[in-house]
């Protein structure tokens, strides 16, 4: 019994060896990427689907966070990075110097940040203006029935209770997008707190990750916090309507995110690094942002470069169709075209 098994196994081994020798395609090598956690579910779906299209493409992605993605692509330890916020000019400078190469940004999908709250007795959506949001997170608005909030919600019976603020304590793209929005709408926020992945909130307490913030908001009555839209949708959290730059209250939805991107396309810079918070347009949700893949323009390994390029072309066309079912807003057509142009600029040696 064991003998036959051994014979079978060794035969199998021989057969597979033979196969390998016949294979004259370029050597299989794995593409490695690392970065943002927010688009991870979508990216893993993409890599999985793409491996069915191109059998030789093996793409491995570690969702270690946007900061880690930037760090690793700068060091050149991965083939591509991913980040929820575009790299700053200094970061690009540093990466280009270190690698003697040029980094390019490819937007993939749009994500957004929603305000979730726990106010007993209120089951309708609260309407929040940029002033009320910045006021709450700066600690200037202390009670739920503050006139600034009440003014926009005449039909709600807001309680005279203290607002408990909950924020993300681990550095994250989510915090960056939220702070970026507040920095645009509030001068006080810009000077007092600033815009970064880790900011020092003047009030409230921190939860770790989306789940940590959700946990805090769920168990603390009269609290408010911010989480990613995908997370809020999956967990059926209650979230606020936010007033956009055109003065409309918009419910965060995938369409509203795509609209925000569409309305901002005209001002999109050549390198595609653009913040779309507080976007114009009646239907735009104001706290949204692109998430990016970070890639070097000159690909030194011809097989890897070719695979990466083909994959990106696939992702921006076929791949986009997987976005909405997973809770991400697909890019508007114009942006897809711009992104594909960028991809085609990648030089493979």
């Amino acid at each position: 019994m064991i003998k036959t098994l051994i014979i079978c196994l060794s035969l199998l081994f021989l057969v597979s060896c033979g196969k390998n020798e016949q294979n004259d395609k370029p050597k299989k090598s794995q593409l490695n990427g690392a970065g943002a956690t927010f688009p991870y579910p979508l990216y893993s779906k993409w890599f999985n689907e793409y491996s069915k299209v191109d059998k030789d493409a093996k793409i491995n992605y570690q969702s270690i966070g946007s900061g880690g993605g930037v760090k690793q692509i700068t060091e050149g330890t991965v083939d591509f990075g991913a980040s929820d916020s575009p790299m700053s000019n200094e970061e690009i400078e540093k990466a280009n110097q270190k690698s003697g190469n040029k980094i390019i940004h490819i937007p993939t999908v749009i994500g957004s940040v929603v305000l979730t709250y726990n106010v007993p007795g209120i089951d309708k959506e609260i309407k929040l203006t940029p002033e009320s949001i910045s006021g709450i997170f700066l600690g200037n608005i202390k009670k739920w029935n503050d006139p600034i909030i009440a003014k926009e919600n005449p039909d709600l019976n807001l309680p005279a209770k203290d607002i408990i603020v909950c924020y993300r304590t681990d550095g994250s793209g989510t915090t960056f997008v939220f702070a970026d929005f507040l920095g645009k709408v509030s001068e006080e926020w810009k000077t007092k707190v600033g815009v970064a992945k880790d900011v020092r909130f003047p009030v409230g307490q921190g939860g770790k990750g989306n789940e940590g913030v959700t946990g805090l908001v769920k168990q603390l009555e009269y609290s408010i916090g911010y989480v990613e839209l995908v997370y809020a949708l999956q967990n059926k959290l209650q979230y606020a309507l936010v007033k956009n730059a055109d003065g409309e209250f918009v419910k965060p939805s995938l369409e509203a995110l795509s609209k925000a991107a569409e309305q901002s396309v005209a001002e999109m810079p050549e390198d595609l690094r653009q913040s779309i918070t507080n976007a114009k347009g009646k239907e735009s949700y104001p706290i949204s942002s692109y998430t990016y893949l970070l890639i070097y323009e000159n690909q030194k390994d011809s097989f890897k470069g070719k695979t990466l390029k083909e994959f990106l072309n696939w992702a921006l066309t076929k791949g986009e169709s997987f976005a909405s079912e997973l809770g991400y807003a697909p890019l508007p057509k114009v942006v897809i075209e711009k992104a594909i142009q960028k991809v085609n600029m990648i030089k493979v040696q």
């Binding site: 270690i64 966070g65 946007s66 900061g67 880690g68 930037v70 760090k71 970061e91 304590t169 681990d170 550095g171 994250s172 970064a196 992945k197 880790d198 307490q205 921190g206 770790k208």
Partner: peptide
Amino acid sequence: PAYSMASVIANEFAEASGSLH
């Protein structure tokens, strides 16, 4: 609310971008 040494390292190290941070 307070903060501990181990927690701040775990929370901020992965996303810390500045070298001083």
